[in-house]
């Protein structure tokens, strides 16, 4: 029997019920090829219609095709029906069918504006291998952004490594990290490889895995709060990217900042608002704007 892969987050596709895409005027799509996950958002007249999220493979063009085809599955729509496609994310220049590539920083701000509305001013994108703090206006246009050269610590990939090390399914990490009597001091290493060996030492000295998770979540939160404080946090504040689904990180960031994130659980009741797809959604909205402009309607 194959060993359970605790790091493996659920890949999924979803179609919004009740939309007849054939009646849509503009069908646009965003394809976000990240270092860890690949996402597609297909919109009909600027509303989410179909989406998928899956693991990025070794080839960006293949990953782009797989996530797009999966999003299209069972919709009756084909690639040819989509008027305009924007690629974004680390692999944005390797989306073979994209008409244009746009940086994920602009796409996450625009996507956050779609998911949470025009009151969003600060977006923290916690991706697979890096984090970006973004300030935007009421239209979701970037005013200021900040990234740094820190590597995979404090990101999705780091969380995968810890889930695997501690044999905890990655979706349960957040909840489990709160089942400690007392919040432990954060893991001190900024490098995932060192943090992992630090965690092994903690386990050996008798720490429970819950306590180690708490220490790691706290370290991740602390690291991104530095980034946020430099860019300046103005409300409303939201978190995008896969880590936005980890309550253990989200609540620790809120606590350290002293500011609550806007409706971090919106996606649980409605998958259209999955924060992991914010970049793909922003790309789809830019695609719509670019198509309309090319037709002289914008």
């Amino acid at each position: 029997m194959a060993e359970k892969e605790f790091w493996r987050w659920p890949e999924y596709r979803h179609t919004t019920p009740g939309i007849n895409w054939r009646e849509g005027k503009v069908i646009s799509a965003g394809v976000d090829i990240g270092s860890v996950s690949s996402k597609t958002a297909i919109m009909v007249d600027g509303e989410m219609f179909a989406q998928s999220a899956m693991r990025t493979g070794s080839s960006s063009p293949d990953s782009a095709e797989r996530t797009m085809n999966w999003a299209l599955e069972d919709t009756g729509m084909t690639l040819k029906d989509i008027h305009y496609i924007v690629g974004t994310g680390y692999g944005r220049v390797n989306v073979p069918f994209a008409h244009k590539a746009i940086t994920e920083i602009a796409c996450h701000a625009r996507g956050a504006n779609y998911v949470w509305g025009p009151t969003v001013r600060t977006v923290l994108d916690m991706g697979g291998q890096d984090c970006k703090a973004i300030r935007c206006d009421e239209r979701g246009k970037v005013q200021n952004f900040l990234m740094n050269d820190k590597c995979a610590a404090g990101t999705g990939r780091g969380m995968e490594v810890f889930a695997d090390l501690l044999s905890v399914p990655i979706e349960e990490v957040g909840e489990l990290s709160f089942t400690v009597d007392e919040e432990p001091p954060p893991v001190s290493s900024t490098c995932v490889v060192f943090a992992k060996s630090e965690a092994v030492g903690m386990l050996r000295s008798g720490w429970s895995k819950e306590k180690v998770l708490a220490a790691y979540c706290r370290a991740m939160a602390h690291r991104v709060v530095d980034l946020l404080n430099r860019v300046g946090v103005e409300k409303d504040f939201v978190i995008t990217g896969g880590i936005a689904k980890n309550i253990g990180i989200v609540q620790r960031i809120e606590k350290e900042l002293g500011i609550k994130a806007l409706k971090p659980d919106k996606w649980r009741s409605d998958p259209r608002f999955d924060p992991m797809l914010a970049g793909a959604m922003g790309a789809a909205l830019f695609a719509k704007a670019l198509y309309e402009r090319s037709k002289g309607q914008g």
Binding site: N144, F145, N148
Partner: peptide
């Protein structure tokens, strides 16, 4: 106005 910030630490 838009400001881009690229950070590094040593």
């Amino acid at each position: 106005m838009m400001k881009a910030n690229y950070g590094y630490a040593d």
